[in-house]
């Protein structure tokens, strides 16, 4: 759809897009109905009851309880329908399917840095396969940004100091515009890019192409050695720090007696601010790695820790 060569509606290129548009059109129909109703009533009353002579004295009407109840309950029930329908869609956008392909995104003034687990990195572009849910794990190096793909009908803020996620599934190959939609400084308007959706086979070819890249997990393992993490966090619980094998997704008991789930945010915090959550039975001796490791590096270490989980799983099977 377009007017004057101007697209009136963005393309539908994700599984979410048609569902969001359905709800959008429902809202549009309700809104047009009420706007028209009010408009017609005002115009009709304005014509019918215009002042014909200066000494007109209309009979006072103080109100009508039935009408008040009617025009409270009808809008109320319609808005409740909107709420339930909208909340269901939102719930879906919030929880990525468990088999989603994870891709890491680091935003900074004013670019998008992407790294795939296989190691291939890109800037202001994101290659993805069609027909497969993609989960972005995003963080920012500086201010708040927002990852917005209109053709997919999804967006989420990208915050410094924590991870946010976004998931979508592209339905057809193509290049779709990516915007930063949270104002982030002078060149905010230039913080744009493309999502390039490829057929799965083409995507595999793309992924293995380019310069020979080290996978994120391997890069993470190298960092794990280089920064000396390994000297305390031995694979078995013999080190001064707890073993990190199979850690991700598990519940961790803390010194304080509380229990937290070891997600990406927990790992990140434990690297940058180790004193925040001390694991039960260990001494608070770990120094901070703030300034020694970049956001990209932290994501690589997390990828490495995730890979440890998988290997352990494989061992159990044996």
């Amino acid at each position: 759809m377009s007017t004057l060569g101007f697209p009136l509606f963005p393309e539908q290129a994700s599984t979410m897009a048609p569902r969001v548009d359905q709800l959008y059109f429902f809202l549009l129909v309700v809104s047009v109905f009420f706007a028209t109703l009010i408009l017609i009533l005002i115009i009709a009353f304005a014509i019918k009851y215009r002042r014909r002579s200066d000494d007109e004295q209309p009979r006072p009407i103080s109100g009508n309880l039935g009408l008040e109840i009617l025009w409270t309950l009808v809008p109320l029930s319609l808005t409740l329908v909107m709420f339930v329908w909208g909340a269901r869609l939102y719930f879906i956008t919030f929880y990525p399917p468990s088999d989603a392909l994870e891709i890491n995104v680091v935003a900074k003034q004013w670019m998008w840095k992407v790294q795939h687990s296989e190691g291939r990195a890109e800037i202001d572009e994101l290659h993805i396969p069609t027909g497969r849910p993609i989960k972005l794990i995003m963080t920012s190096q500086d201010v708040i940004h927002d990852f917005f793909v209109p053709a997919f009908r999804v967006k989420n803020d990208v915050l410094p100091g924590r991870y946010t996620t976004l998931w979508f599934e592209a339905t057809k190959p193509g290049a779709y515009r990516l915007f930063c939609s949270q104002y982030c400084g002078t060149q905010h308007s230039g913080m744009i890019g493309y999502i390039i959706a490829l057929e799965p086979a083409e995507f595999q070819a793309w992924l293995s192409g380019g310069a020979t890249a080290v996978s994120m997990a391997t890069a993470g393992e190298n960092l794990f050695q280089k920064l000396g993490c390994v000297s305390c966090h031995a694979p078995n619980d013999t080190g001064r720090g707890p073993s990190l094998v199979g850690l991700l997704g598990k519940a961790v008991r803390l010194q304080s007696g509380a229990s937290v789930t070891a997600d990406e945010d927990y790992i990140r915090e434990s690297i940058l601010n180790p004193q925040a959550k001390i694991v039960a039975g260990y001494q608070p001796i770990m120094p901070t790695f703030k300034g020694l490791i970049s956001e990209d590096g932290i994501m690589q270490i997390i990828a490495y820790l995730k890979s440890l989980k998988r290997e352990e799983g494989a061992q159990v099977k044996k």
């Binding site: 569902r19 969001v20 709800l23 959008y24 809202l27 309700v30 809104s31 009420f34 706007a35 009010i38 408009l39 808005t79 909107m82 709420f83 329908w85 909208g86 909340a87 269901r88 869609l89 939102y90 956008t93 927002d146 917005f148 209109p150 009908r153 999804v154 967006k155 939609s181 949270q182």
Partner: peptide, 22 residues
């Protein structure tokens, strides 16, 4: 009336995700 009705689009979660910040 128009301003109020468009507010409903923004209060509706699934649609707001798309039109937020635009």
């Amino acid at each position: 009336t128009i301003g109020g009705l468009t507010g409903l689009f923004l209060a509706t979660l699934g649609v707001d995700v798309h039109v937020h910040d635009t």
